[in-house]
Amino acid sequence: MNNFININKDAPIGFFDSGVGGLSVLKEAIKLLPRENFIYFGDSKNAPYGSKTVEEVRKLSFAAADYLLGKGVKALVVACNTATSAAIEDLRETYPQITIIGIEPALKPAVELGRKGKILIMATPVTLAESKFNNLMKSFEKTSEIVPVPCPGLAELIEAGKVEGKEVEFFLKDKLHQYMGINIASIVLGCTHYPFIKKELVSIFGSTVPIIDGSCGTAKHLRRMLLQNDLMSERTESGSVQIFNSLDSQKIIDLSYRLLNL
């Protein structure tokens, strides 16, 4: 695979996700790194990863990484919580010469808010079941009441372009009804698809409950690693964004650009 890798300051940064969700992370990266070129690969054909086995997620993650490395990316962002949980260590071991960044649920910033009440973590069943996530949760359980909330089916709704309206509202109320009316410290969005339905969550819980996701922290970590590895682009003009998808569908590409510009 090494012949695919082109460590070049002006090479693009690759992002991948099980579909359109990782665009929420890419949006933050574009704000922080406006001179970089980005290539985004959404694997909507195999979405969602959150309902697959860990081994299936690993295979799909390597296929996505190989696709982006074939396009000569200088760094790789796994913009998918499920893929990060299942495959990030294996990817780093296989490609030690490439900078690989993963995303994980933003539990630490939620705990650091120091608010009283339950911290709800909305995520896919695979993310919640993985040892990486459970170790993260255990590290904070002495000081905080952390409640995992599996949301099978939510990524599929967003993947279909449904980010607001009655169907999304009904889904969220069905999953979260037992937590409505009680003291919620914060809501952590443990899937990169979920920031796109933040507006609906605010309508249910109100604007006083902090809703936190890992996209901003991941973008900041990417910038730190580019600086550390002397990989920042030296261009003076704005960078570009190319979006690819495993589905042979203009509709999903159009949705991707629409979500990126929300």
Rank of each mutant, 00 (worst) to 15 (best):
I146Y: 09
K59R: 15
K220C: 00
L262F: 10
V168A: 08
Y49D: 05
I212S: 10
L128S: 00
L76K: 11
K166Y: 05
S238T: 10
F62I: 02
T53P: 03
P96Y: 04
S249N: 09
L60W: 09
Q178F: 02
S246Y: 05
V25D: 04
R115M: 12
T94S: 00
M225I: 03
G21L: 13
R258P: 04
S246C: 09
Y49T: 09
G50P: 11
E89D: 15
V20R: 12
Y194L: 04
A65S: 10
L154H: 14
G42P: 08
A110M: 14
K27C: 00
L26F: 06
I187G: 07
P96I: 04
K45F: 07
G102Q: 13
L91T: 03
H177W: 00
A64E: 03
I184H: 08
P48G: 09
V77S: 03
N8T: 08
Q228R: 13
P48M: 11
I39K: 02
P148C: 11
V111Y: 12
A123D: 06
L69H: 03
Y67W: 10
P109H: 06
L107H: 07
L226N: 11
E89G: 04
S203P: 06
S18V: 14
F16V: 05
P148R: 07
E130Y: 05
S51H: 02
D230N: 15
P105I: 11
T236N: 13
V149M: 08
F41S: 04
A64T: 02
K31H: 09
E55N: 15
P12V: 01
G181Y: 07
T53E: 10
A185Y: 11
M180V: 05
L176R: 10
F171E: 02
I119C: 13
I243L: 08
M225S: 02
E167G: 01
L33Q: 03
R224N: 12
N81R: 11
P48H: 12
G161H: 09
I121N: 06
E36H: 01
K199D: 11
I121L: 10
M180T: 06
N135S: 14
N2L: 05
Y40S: 07
E89F: 11
I39H: 01
P152Y: 15
G214Q: 03
A29N: 09
V241F: 04
G114T: 13
S240V: 00
C151Y: 11
K59C: 07
T236F: 08
A87G: 09
D213W: 14
G22P: 12
L189F: 15
S61I: 12
Y179G: 02
V57A: 05
S240D: 05
E200I: 12
Q242C: 04
V54T: 09
T94H: 01
A83M: 08
K52H: 15
F196W: 14
E93H: 02
T143E: 15
